[in-house]
Amino acid sequence: MKIVVIGAGPAGLYFSLLAKKSNPEHEIQVFEQNVKGATYGWGVVFSDIGLTFLKEADPEFFQEFTANHERCDYMEVVHQDTHVQIHGNHFSRTARVDMLKTLQDACEREGVRVEYGKRIEDIESLASQVDLVVAADGGNSAVRSQFADHFRPTFEKRRNKFAWYGTHQRFHPVSLIFRPNEHGTFIAHAYQYSPQLSTFLVEVDPDTWKRAGLDTASEEESRRYCAEVFRPDLGSNELLTNRSLWFEATIVKNEHWTHRNIVLLGDALRTVHFSLGSGTRMAMQDAIALHKAVSAHPENIPAAFATFEELRRPASKSFQGAASKSLDWYENVDTKLHLDPVSFAYDYMRRTGQVSHDDLKARDPLFAAAYEATQSELTELAQTTAA
């Protein structure tokens, strides 16, 4: 097959790698509008479940992909200055730039041609010259925009504000930190992704953001303000910037996933909020599914697309539903701050409705027992007060 992939992110590169390794006769060309090595953001995180899919798809590349990851088997919720650990949550982290380089190098070794600094303007003409066009060009997909009347995308902008930072403070567990001050509640999502650096994502509701003056602050002023909010957690380390501008999360969905011989993949297809840490995982699972579908129907693109949707639509719907509930929890966190630290962490873990008490008990019996003991004490206190 003659295949063009637009976008050299995780979805586009991983599909290209799997397809080329499976059938070296495929002619695969990847076009990326940015120059090689240009990426924003800090680290990415995978759960053990996400990595299982990658190991099953290509065990050899999996070893290369995870060779230098930072690993941890627990997470931590910081509330009221109390650190609550929840074990049985395995995470693997790496720098985004390193992840992309690993994918790029593997693709080029297999003979996939990757051209950087190349923006495709005429998708219609390109599609007429090849068997398959994979549009993996991100949440602001130009391909999706060009054929918007067919793909019928919807965009839901959520209310909270976010800014991506890095720091030399090393957060070994995936950490969620809640810091109220005179302006409102600030949230940090932090995790170490290299021997020297951690990702540090700051989240705040729009009213608090304005009261703090962050709506008019420069990038440097915002960095300094957030560093002081989280000084108890950062210690002597500062926050580091890399286009650390405030933004809102936009949830993207598409009614149709394909058009003629064009298929959307990754964030171009659907976005999953980073509060679930699943965007990159979902993109690479899309790549696996599309590869399986094309391999099953190499001479029949409509059949391949039908198989791809059959494989991915249920998971996509499930993840976006869970992400919506997760977003709701964060956007209404002020209603939870009265909870004691253990109950607060428990409420967080149950926020999507997909994790039961028995699930938590199986993952971390000590955490579940601590929650049960806390609830028993609260019940006894309520009964004593009533008497």
Rank of each mutant, 00 (worst) to 15 (best):
S376Y: 08
L18K: 11
G7M: 13
A373C: 04
A67K: 15
V5F: 11
S295M: 11
V202W: 00
H26G: 11
V272D: 08
P59M: 07
I301S: 09
M349N: 09
K118T: 14
K20L: 15
R281L: 11
S244K: 04
A127Y: 00
K161W: 07
N332T: 11
F62V: 02
Q104W: 06
P314C: 03
V130W: 01
Y371Q: 12
P206Y: 01
H256C: 03
Q285W: 08
A188M: 00
R281P: 05
D207K: 12
P365E: 12
R313H: 11
E64T: 15
Y346S: 13
D207Q: 14
F230N: 00
R93F: 05
S141C: 02
I251Y: 08
A303G: 01
Y14P: 07
F178N: 03
Y165C: 00
D98R: 10
Y40V: 13
K2L: 04
F344N: 03
D205P: 00
Q320K: 06
T167G: 01
Y14M: 10
A370P: 06
V30C: 15
R159A: 09
L339G: 05
M1D: 05
L17Q: 14
A289K: 06
K253L: 09
R224H: 09
W257R: 07
H183Y: 12
T52C: 06
E372Q: 13
L51N: 09
P298Y: 09
T241H: 00
F155V: 00
R179V: 07
F230K: 01
F65E: 10
N23D: 15
P59H: 05
F15N: 02
A57K: 06
G213T: 03
L51W: 10
M75Y: 08
F178L: 09
G37M: 07
L176D: 04
D286R: 13
R351N: 06
R224N: 05
F230C: 02
Q354L: 13
V342E: 13
G50C: 04
Y40C: 04
V84H: 00
M282D: 13
V4F: 04
R109C: 04
T216Y: 01
V229D: 03
I251D: 13
Q169K: 15
T335S: 15
H357Y: 13
K317M: 12
G37E: 12
Y225M: 02
D149K: 08
L126Q: 00
F178V: 10
D328T: 14
D358I: 11
P180C: 06
A11Q: 09
A142T: 08
E56C: 02
V77P: 08
H87S: 15
S275F: 11
L234Y: 00
E372F: 07
E156H: 11
Q146S: 13
V252A: 03
Q196F: 07
Q129L: 07
